[in-house]
C-alpha cells in the first residue's frame, strides 16, 4: 500500500526526516512513537503535501504511485487521509458543506456520481453516531468553538465519511480524557476492514491499548530506530524514551 524509502525532508533550513523507511501493507496498523521533536508530525505533513515541507530525497509510493508527484488534493483523492493533531477552525464554512464538498470530490476522483443531499445526510448521520457527535455539529462552522475532544472526534468522523485507503492519525489521542479516547479508538476500529491501513502517530502508549497495532516503530531524530510488535509500545511505556541515544531534543 505505502512504501517510503530513505525519506529526507526539511522545514526551511532544518532537515527533520533523515532517511526514513516504512512499508505498510493493506489492512495493517502501524504505530509510530517517539519523543517530541522526533519528526512524527512532519511525516504526516510531508506525506499529505503541506507547503513548506520540502522533500530532499527519497520516495513515497501509494499503490505504486509517486505521492510526491501529486498535489495535496490529489493525494487525498488517491486515498491518503491525515487526521490533524490540531484541526483547523474555519468559522464561515459549515461542517456540512465542507464534508459534502469533500465526499463528492473523492467520489468524483473515483469516477462515482455525487451523493444526493439525502444520501449524504444519511451517511453523515451514521458517521456522527460512530464518534458520538451530535448532529447539530454538522451545521456549525468547521471545528468552530469545538472542544479539543470534539475536534478529534470530528477528524475521525471525516475519516469515516471519506473512506481512505490509508489514514494517518497524528496524535489523535493528545488532550483527550479516557472516555473521549475510547470514542476515537472505537471510531478507528470500526474502519479496520482488512484493506484499510493506518499509521497511528502517538507520543504515548495509551492509545495503543485501544487501537491495537500490528507493528510499532520508534522514531528518533528523523529515522526509525527500532521496530517491533505491540510489546515495543509497552517497553516505551515502562522506560520512556531516555534509552534513545544522546543528543535527543526534548
Amino acid at each position: 500500500m505505502l512504501t517510503i524509502k530513505d525519506l529526507h525532508a526539511r522545514v526551511e533550513e532544518t532537515t527533520i526526516l533523515k532517511g526514513l523507511n516504512l512499508e505498510v501493507k493493506p489492512g495493517e496498523v502501524h504505530a509510530i512513537m517517539g519523543p517530541n521533536g522526533a519528526g512524527k508530525s512532519t511525516l504526516g505533513y510531508v506525506l499529505s503535501g503541506r507547503e513548506g515541507y520540502e522533500v530532499e530525497s527519497g520516495s513515497a509510493e501509494l499503490d505504486g504511485k509517486d505521492l510526491f508527484d501529486m498535489e495535496v488534493e490529489e493525494r487525498a483523492q488517491a486515498g491518503v487521509f491525515l487526521a490533524f493533531q490540531y484541526p483547523v477552525e474555519i468559522p464561515g464554512v459549515s461542517n456540512m458543506e465542507f464534508m459534502k464538498e469533500s465526499v463528492n470530490a473523492m467520489r468524483e476522483a473515483r469516477g462515482e456520481d455525487a451523493l444526493s443531499s439525502a444520501e449524504f445526510l444519511k451517511k453523515a448521520k451514521e458517521a456522527c453516531k460512530h464518534v458520538e457527535l451530535p448532529l447539530d455539529f454538522l451545521k456549525r462552522g468547521v471545528n468552530e468553538g469545538f472542544s479539543g475532544g470534539e475536534k478529534k472526534r470530528n477528524e475521525i468522523m471525516q475519516m469515516i465519511m471519506l473512506e481512505p485507503k490509508l489514514a494517518i492519525l497524528d496524535e489523535s489521542d493528545s488532550g483527550l480524557d479516557v472516555d473521549a479516547l475510547q470514542v476515537v479508538a472505537k471510531g478507528v476500529n470500526s474502519q479496520r476492514d482488512g484493506n484499510r491501513s493506518f499509521i497511528v502517530v502517538t507520543h504515548y502508549q495509551r492509545l495503543l491499548d485501544y487501537i491495537e497495532p500490528d507493528y510499532v516503530h520508534i522514531l528518533s531524530q528523523g529515522k526509525i530506530v527500532k521496530s517491533g510488535g505491540p510489546e515495543l509500545a509497552k517497553e516505551v511505556e515502562a522506560s520512556g524514551y531516555a534509552w534513545l541515544k544522546e543528543g535527543e531534543s526534548a
Binding site: S48, G49, R50, E51, E71, V72, E73, R75, A76, Q77, F81, L82, F84, P87, V88, I90, F98, E101, S102, A105, M106, A109, V142, Q158, L162
Partner: peptide, 10 residues
C-alpha cells in the same frame, strides 16, 4: 491546506 487534504480542489 486543511481543505486540500480533504480532497477539495484548490
Amino acid at each position: 491546506y486543511y481543505m486540500l487534504t480533504r480532497g477539495i480542489d484548490k
